[in-house]
């Protein structure tokens, strides 16, 4: 049985339909991608799954249980964790305190004992180390680079030991090396039995780590399949580029070299 099932969800803001009868499933223990052009409704989908946005119609099922009406914090208790595209780190707290707070929230009263024997501190350190931001531990969360803040949100979500982890554009702000390391971490998390659903624009990352990809456009799923299938899917290409013919080829140099553009533009 799939871990998460989004069933015919519709979200309307006034007259605008952000999500239009979207249905998809996420299998346990996988890294699944949710991609689509700007404004396709990906983040709104995440908000519906986590309960921050009530759907106009449709259902969300976790492990076969209908959680459409459950409040945000109860879904978190059921094992849904997430990060945000527009960051929601606790800006006034240090990176360390951010993760510690998440741990405290998750542990509830049990946490009191953990803080006595110091195991909570250890856990925080492990989490920071795991996502690779230990060196920022004592900095305020509103003063660290975006990439670090995103990893911080991941560490914070992991502190609550989620079964299903929703990541909203986790790699933006990371450089190439960090992105590769991040991809490895995702695969590792899936290996532990966690399920990852990721909205991501870095196609290299998506194509390498995701086992399944759902493509959202105009609020509806227009394609799903393996990375190899998605890459050559003409429907997807049209959604992204506005054309279908495969003119692509050659010149990989563009991303690497920094051409002095003024020379080219000036006649």
């Amino acid at each position: 049985m799939s871990l998460l099932r989004v069933d015919d969800v519709v979200v309307q803001f006034g007259g605008v339909t952000a999500v239009n009868h979207a249905s998809f499933e996420v299998e346990p223990g996988t890294v699944t991608g949710l991609i689509g052009p700007n404004g396709a409704g990906k983040t709104t989908c995440f908000n519906v799954i986590t309960g921050l946005q009530a759907p106009t119609s449709g259902r969300v099922l976790l492990d076969g249980h209908d959680i459409t009406k459950a409040p945000v914090h109860r879904r978190a208790r059921r094992g849904i964790g997430r990060t945000f595209q527009r960051l929601e780190a606790f800006g006034s707290l240090t990176v360390w305190d951010n993760v510690r707070t998440a741990l405290d929230i998750h542990d509830g009263f049990r946490g009191l004992f953990k803080s006595v024997d110091g195991s909570a501190d250890q856990e925080v350190e492990q989490l920071l180390e795991r996502v690779g931001i230990s060196e920022y531990a004592d900095e305020r969360a509103d003063s660290v680079p975006t990439g670090v803040a995103r990893l911080l949100e991941l560490a914070r979500a992991l502190a609550c030991d989620p079964r299903l982890l929703l990541l909203d554009e986790p790699s933006s702000g990371l450089d190439e090396v960090e992105t590769v390391a991040f991809g490895r971490l995702l695969v590792e998390l899936a290996g532990e039995g966690r399920t990852v659903l990721m909205v991501e624009h870095d196609m290299d990352l998506v194509m390498t780590v995701c086992e399944v990809i759902h493509v959202l456009d105009f609020g509806s799923i227009i394609a799903q399949g393996s990375p190899a299938q998605i890459r050559v899917d003409p429907v997807v290409q049209r959604a992204y580029l506005g054309f279908t013919d495969q003119t692509a080829g050659g010149a990989h140099a563009a991303t690497a070299s920094d051409i002095d553009d003024t020379k080219v533009l000036a006649p």
Binding site: M203, L241, A248, A251
Partner: peptide, 15 residues
């Protein structure tokens, strides 16, 4: 010239 390289940049050049 740009059109030729766009698909690589946007959808990833791994293919």
């Amino acid at each position: 010239e740009i059109e030729a390289i766009m698909a690589d940049i946007v959808l990833g050049g791994a293919a």
